[in-house]
Design a protein around this nucleic acid. Structure first.
Lengths: 217, 217
DNA sequence: TACTTGACAGCACAAGTGTTTGCCCGCTAT
DNA sequence: ATAGCGGGCAAACACTTGTGCTGTCAAGTA
């Protein structure tokens, strides 16, 4: 049985383990780490699968070097340092439905590197990223194509910029949140757009914006 | 002779070497890597200084584990992955002088983690970061407090957002660059501000903006 | 059936690497 | 002087860790 990317189940596990191990320890696992924790009976099996992963371009290896497994970064190894990876769960478009974060297989989702300066690790639990589509938040200096970092939370204070799901419409959108008496106002940060008024029953807050990344390359 | 942070010259070198090594290879150096490249005569000397560095909190070590040196991240190890570190050289304020990047000791400068998504490594040569002060670029969605990533370059195309030094004024500022006949127009991205007109003699381009980071915590 | 191939086991060897011990040198305070 | 100490040397030692065989086993495949 193979997964979508042509890896065996075991290879998939190894791949994730490597990532997780590095996340936990800050250095790469040795073959025997993988063997032990994944309960593989022999180091040679690990080596075998590592070789397969390497040939498939999923990992980089430095022969003979202890703990020399690295994850490819699409590019030649250059300046590298500790950071955090958060899952990039998709695109958030004004009015378009977004896959429920909780239902996405976070382990497999594409990852975005988050600068430590933006999010320290203890604050990083339950942080995920979304690519912004549209310009509804332009006045908040968030443009089309930017990546927003969200922390999962189900409540918000007035003025918070949040990703909210509109239950009836089955749509998720990025708006500023205001509780007004019995209704809720979802305000785009774009003076040409109108706010959405709805009831608290109909909104489900998915997360609050905690950071923005933009590439101008 | 000691440096400002109470490290010996050798310790300082080792520290920088570790960072550089990880940047280059993606995994941490072994004691013998340090020994060889820094031309230290014995592994025990390296171990000795590593121990000192550890006691001073400059590095983390996992005893016995090969290549288990890691740089502290102020926080408990959590999700960590490859990224790039670029030096944060200071603050760029409209009209304020900025230390010439080339004159700053880059090795010691504070570092900013840059997401790979923003800057791929081969493009990352000579990239540095500046914290933005003021709102002269607000229309370009760059706010006070944002961190901009700049790639060092001395020329610019029309419309590029660049950090330019005005030689006469001895000031550095963030503006959009336009060559107009014999003069140069430096246009703030803020409709309430006026452009600066000057001659090409008076401008020295320090870098072009290639990315923006913002933390909303 | 006989031959291949992919995947896994077990094991031992040989590098790769961290640690330890003893000694040396220059300096400073006793 | 001389004992103490920070720093450095060198070599030996022992653990860590990647690799290389040799087999086994099940699933094709001619």
């Amino acid at each position: 049985m193979r997964t979508a990317d042509g890896l065996s189940v075991r290879q998939e596990k190894i791949l994730r383990y490597i990532e997780e191990f590095f996340g936990k320890h800050g250095y790469w696992p040795a073959i025997r780490d993988i063997q032990t924790d994944l309960k593989i009976s022999s180091t040679s099996v690990v080596a075998y699968n590592l070789k397969a992963l390497q040939e498939k371009g999923k990992i980089n290896r430095q022969g003979k070097v202890s703990r020399g497994i690295t994850l490819p970064t699409t590019l030649s190894p250059t300046l590298i340092g500790p950071t955090h990876r958060v899952p990039l769960l998709g695109t958030i478009t004004a009015g378009q439905p977004l896959p429920d974060p909780e239902q996405v297989d976070i382990g497999r989702a594409e990852k975005v590197e988050v600068p430590q300066d933006i999010a320290s690790a203890d604050k990083l639990k339950d942080v995920y990223a979304l690519k912004v589509r549209g310009q509804s938040m332009i006045d908040a200096l968030i443009d089309d194509g930017d990546i927003v970092l969200l922390r999962r939370q189900e409540t918000a204070n007035n003025g918070d910029m949040v990703a909210v799901m509109l239950v009836e419409e089955n749509a998720v959108t990025l708006k500023k949140f205001y509780q007004e008496d019995s209704r809720i106002r979802l305000q785009p940060a774009n003076s040409t757009m109108q706010p959405i008024y709805t009831t608290s029953d109909n909104v489900r807050i998915q997360g609050r914006v905690v950071g923005v990344l933009r590439s101008l390359f």
